Structure formats: structure tokens, C-alpha cells
Simulated assay, not measured.
Amino acid sequence: MDSLLNRITNCTICQASLPYPPKPILSFSDTSRILIIGQAPGRKAHDSGIPWNDASGEELRRWLAVAPAEFYDPSLFGIVPMGFCFPGTGKSGDLPPRPECAPTWHPQLLTALTDIKLILLIGSYAQSYYLKERSYRTLTENVSHYRDFLPDYFPLVHPSPRNRIWQKKNPWFEEEVIPELRKQVRKALVS
């Protein structure tokens, strides 16, 4: 496991396409119980080296009802984005995750992480990649039909402050999805 993590943290396959030197940001252990697959590290995560080290991370931890100590414990949570390095900023936020990371590293990671009980697919990039033909037409439909993907996957909207408008338009998310998410997280952590 340490060898795999070392190879990933030293990866440079997309170096020519990044605005900064490669700095893969992820966390996992051979006993991780829940795998969080998000988009790519943001600028704050790039600067600190800590994934989900921003307002999005605070909201995600609230959704999961876990303290930072639990969230950052790799024996409990593996954090593996679709793109491991900060992709840079575009006109309307961060650029999409680099497409090289997931096909290169995710199959090896999923083979190595044998104790995973639940995979959280955060955002459209993770959902498109993992749900494939099972995916509904939109992210909102994936999230509203989350039960269709259990027990393997739990699709979620990205917890970015930019998505607060989406949350206001979809009050069922806070009322129905979040309580079930917390139940599934507790179940995965204790099973």
C-alpha cells in the first residue's frame, strides 16, 4: 500500500498540462472503510496539501456528521479525487480534473482497498466515470435516485458554496438524502 501511495504522490503524467508543479493530494490506507471520490483538489488544498481543506470540506463533513479527526483518519476515510492535482482556475471556477489520473490509478487503488464499504461519488465527473450506463441523465437525478446505486455508491452534489442555489431549489436533498447518507456512513464505519 505504501508503494502505491508513493508512486501516486510522485506521479507526473499530466505535468505539462498543469499550471503548477504536480502535487497529488489524496489519502487512504489498507483499512479505509469509506472512499470519497471527488473532482480535484482546489487551490487551498494545493497550497496546504490537505484535501477538502476549505468551505466545501466543512460542508461535506457536516453532511457526513463527522469531525475533522474522523474525516482525516485514513483508516476510516480514503480520499481519492478524479484528478489528483489542482488543475488551475478557469472563468467560472476550477478547471475540470485532468483525465489521466482516474484511468491510470483508480483501478489499482480499488483493487488494493479491500475494506471499502461505501464509495461517495461527489460531483458529475465521479458519477459519469463510475456510474456509466447506470447513470441518469443529470446529476440531480443521480442524487435523487441514490438508492438505486446502494450499497456500492452514494452519489452526491458537490458541497461547494457555489451549489447553495442548487440546494435551495432541491430541499429534498437536506430533508431526505442527508439523513440517509449519515446512516450509511455510520453503518460503513462500524461494519
Rank of each mutant, 00 (worst) to 15 (best):
I34Q: 03
I34D: 04
Q39L: 12
Q39D: 12
A40Y: 02
P41E: 10
G42M: 06
G42E: 14
R43W: 11
R43I: 15
A45S: 15
H46A: 13
H46N: 15
H46Y: 15
G49A: 04
I50C: 02
A55W: 08
A55F: 12
A55K: 14
S56Y: 07
L60E: 06
L60N: 06
L60F: 07
R61F: 10
W63G: 10
W63E: 10
A65T: 11
V66S: 09
A69Q: 14
E70Y: 05
F71P: 05
Y72K: 01
Y72S: 02
D73V: 00
P74T: 09
G78I: 06
G78P: 09
I79H: 03
I79C: 03
P81N: 15
M82D: 05
F84H: 12
F84P: 06
P87H: 07
G88W: 04
T89E: 11
T89M: 12
K91T: 13
G93E: 07
D94H: 02
L95C: 05
L95K: 13
P97V: 12
R98H: 12
C101H: 03
A102G: 01
P103W: 04
P103M: 10
T104L: 10
P107K: 01
Q108S: 13
L110A: 02
A112K: 07
A112C: 09
A112E: 12
L113C: 03
D115L: 08
D115C: 11
I116M: 07
I116E: 04
I116L: 05
I119T: 13
L121Y: 00
A126Y: 00
S128I: 00
L131R: 00
R134D: 04
S135V: 00
